[in-house]
């Protein structure tokens, strides 16, 4: 028969048993948090991952209410683990995140390799950013991380460093999604050097005050809040300073759909989705009008002064 049983209730959509058992404890903790809430700036998570050192909330943080932890961690695009939004939550647990190193090389005076422990020792801060996916949905995410420029400055980029090429992890034995040639693995992204050095561009190592869950790009990922989500590569292993504009994974896959810049822009239509409005997860109606540069135009519009944003989409 063709009629399949509908899989309306995925195991991942139910509360995991350990969490369910701890519910009273969590409720108490939440109540305590509500009383002490003003003391700690960071948003509390319930992921059970290692806590990060107490972090100050950045002046770049949005005052909007963050999307619930369970939605941020269970609705992800991380195609290495499958193309369904719930695949990363289900399968990313296998990702090996230790040992982990990030190579920073290319056009610079002091290329070097950073161990993840070293990155975690950098001064961290909380950044509550809007995240706008090219698929016309959005979230508000309390990331924990540091500005990418803090790292790039350490390798002393030279005059030829016009772009940064980001390469993300490729672990065929832990990533079921890379068996299919959905994209040309490993996933590669890129930024212009001034975009990479911009104070809004961060490397995130945490979420909701805790270590980054695998499905969100553990142990370290890029976050560029004024661009569509796919620009913010997950599980970064290499950053190469280059002279020529890198060819990104999505540009390779569908050049007419995904441009190098991919700035959030309601006036540049995507062949698949109207970008006029967006649905804030988990709302039903896409009632929010999308704002150019995802609302960060005040800080970043000058990067694109004089550029035709319809041409450089």
């Amino acid at each position: 028969m063709l009629v399949k049983r509908p899989h309306d209730y995925l195991p991942s959509e139910l509360t995991p048993e350990p969490l369910y058992r701890r519910r009273r404890e969590l409720l108490r903790a939440a109540a305590a948090g509500a009383i002490l809430g003003a003391a700690g700036a960071a948003h509390a998570a319930s992921g059970g991952l290692p806590k990060l050192p107490s972090t100050a909330r950045s002046r770049f943080s949005s005052p909007e209410k963050p999307t619930e932890y369970k939605h941020v961690t269970r609705y992800n695009n991380f195609y290495e683990f499958g193309t369904d939004k719930t695949d990363p939550y289900q399968y990313a647990g296998r990702l090996k995140t230790r040992p982990w190193t990030v190579v920073v090389d290319g056009e610079c005076a002091k290329p070097r390799t950073f161990g993840i422990e070293e990155l975690l020792k950098l001064p961290l801060e909380e950044r509550v950013y809007r995240l706008r996916c090219v698929e016309a949905w959005s979230m508000v995410v309390p990331w924990v991380g540091f500005e990418l420029n803090a790292l790039l400055k350490q390798v002393e980029p030279n005059g030829n460093a016009k772009f940064v090429e980001f390469t993300t992890a490729l672990q065929p034995d832990t990533m079921p999604g890379v068996r299919l040639p959905v994209l040309d693995w490993p996933y590669v992204e890129g930024l212009r050097i001034d975009e990479a050095m911009h104070p809004l561009t961060i490397l995130a190592v945490g979420l909701y005050g805790e270590a980054l869950p695998n499905q969100n790009g553990a142990p370290v990922r890029l976050v560029v809040p004024w661009k569509y989500g796919f620009k913010s590569g997950k599980s970064i292993v290499r950053m190469r300073l280059v002279e020529k504009q890198p060819l990104t994974a999505w540009e390779k896959a569908a050049p007419h759909e995904y441009g190098f810049y991919s700035n959030v822009n309601p006036d540049v239509d995507h062949p698949r989705w109207s970008q006029k409005r967006e649905r804030r997860i988990p709302e039903f109606f896409a009632r929010r009008e999308t704002v150019i540069f995802n609302g960060y135009g005040g800080q970043v519009a000058q990067l694109y002064a004089g550029m035709d944003l319809k041409k450089f989409f």
Partner: peptide
């Protein structure tokens, strides 16, 4: 589910 338990439909129930 839409009326009483949207949570069961995941983070993007409308989709």
């Amino acid at each position: 589910a839409a009326v009483w338990f949207p949570e069961l439909l995941g983070a993007n129930p409308a989709e």
